[in-house]
């Protein structure tokens, strides 16, 4: 009885704020429901509708692209930052604290500051102008990143292969990378400090340079941490909402619209709660799929 009483309150909270909403979402996803009228059972219609809804497919593609930009960038950048801050240089503690500031900065504040930087006549374009490059309208540019880069070199192309991701989506993704990388850096830092110094010294004695130590000692040593970062970053990227809400409202013409924002629009603006629940479930399944793939790759089911 004792253990049950100890875990009881926690379980009750979990059941109330997680279990019940999930079950309710599943129930709603099979209904047509607009809050004010009784729910009407429609079977799988909401799911059929989703996969024939052009906007949903566009938003789903945006979200996957967004994750494809954000996750690798976070894994690499956070690791490099951690490597840098793991060195015994003066002021390391100050830098660690300073680099963490974006994580605790409100997304509203961060979004507004980044909008200033991204303005067509903002700081970023002023810097580019100094290099003789005419900067784009970052958050409103619907050309692909490849098209913009080639355009800067004077090469104009309409290739569909270069039209994704749109520069606007890429620009929003960079804000996520800036804001979240210090968080993952801390995880990497913990991993780096767990790597035995003897191993690194032994590699150096054997003639390994800095890069070979990183490649053959450090990267394999922090592999579990890389997998944790990948899983968390993927889930977070798929659920991104604040950046879109504050910076673009999903525009221009849905090029920065992501699943969480779309669900919010469906549920709260159009009051299509059943359909919003179905799209939420699809998002949940995608996240679970990614988590399972990562879990398998990490050997997470082989704990012993």
């Amino acid at each position: 009885m004792t253990p049950y009483l100890f875990v009881g309150p926690g379980l009750l909270l979990l059941a109330t704020f997680f279990g019940y909403p999930v079950l309710d979402t599943i129930w709603l996803s099979f209904h047509k429901y607009n809050i004010f009228n009784p729910a009407q059972f429609i079977g799988l219609d909401n799911f059929h509708r989703a996969f024939s809804d052009e906007l949903f497919l566009r938003v789903l593609a945006n979200t996957l692209l967004y994750a494809a930009i954000v996750v690798p960038a976070l894994v690499v950048l956070s690791f490099l930052l951690a490597l840098l801050l793991n060195s015994a240089v003066p002021g390391t503690k100050l830098f660690r604290t300073a680099y963490y500031i974006p994580v605790v900065t409100s997304i509203v504040v961060a979004g507004i500051i980044w909008k200033w930087l991204y303005n067509s006549d903002g700081l970023l374009n002023a810097l580019l102008q100094g290099l003789g490059i005419a900067g784009p309208a970052w958050l409103a540019d619907t050309r692909g990143v490849g098209q913009v880069l080639l355009g800067a070199l004077g090469i104009q192309t309409q290739s569909v292969w270069l039209s994704e991701p749109a520069l606007a989506l890429f620009s929003v993704a960079m804000v996520t990378v800036w804001k979240a990388s210090p968080y993952y850096m801390i995880i990497y830092l913990a991993g780096l400090q767990g790597i035995s110094k003897e191993l690194e010294e032994a590699a150096r004695v054997d003639g390994a340079g800095r890069w070979r130590v990183v490649r053959h000692v450090i990267i394999p040593g922090i592999r579990p941490y890389t997998l944790v970062v990948t899983i968390i970053a993927t889930i977070a990227a798929m659920r991104t909402f604040g950046e879109v809400y504050v910076m673009t409202g999903g525009g221009p013409f849905h090029r920065t619209n992501l699943l969480s924002y779309y669900i919010y629009t469906l549920g709260f603006k159009y009051l299509e709660v059943g359909y919003a629940a179905a799209v939420s479930l699809i998002l949940l399944l995608i996240i679970m799929l990614f988590a399972m793939i990562n879990f398998r790759l990490s050997g997470g089911d082989n704990t012993n």
Binding site: A140, D141, T248, G249, G251, T256
Partner: peptide
């Protein structure tokens, strides 16, 4: 109009 007019939000 500013280019950001297409993707602005709130009281921009």
């Amino acid at each position: 109009l500013p280019p950001e007019a297409l993707a602005a939000a709130h009281r921009d």
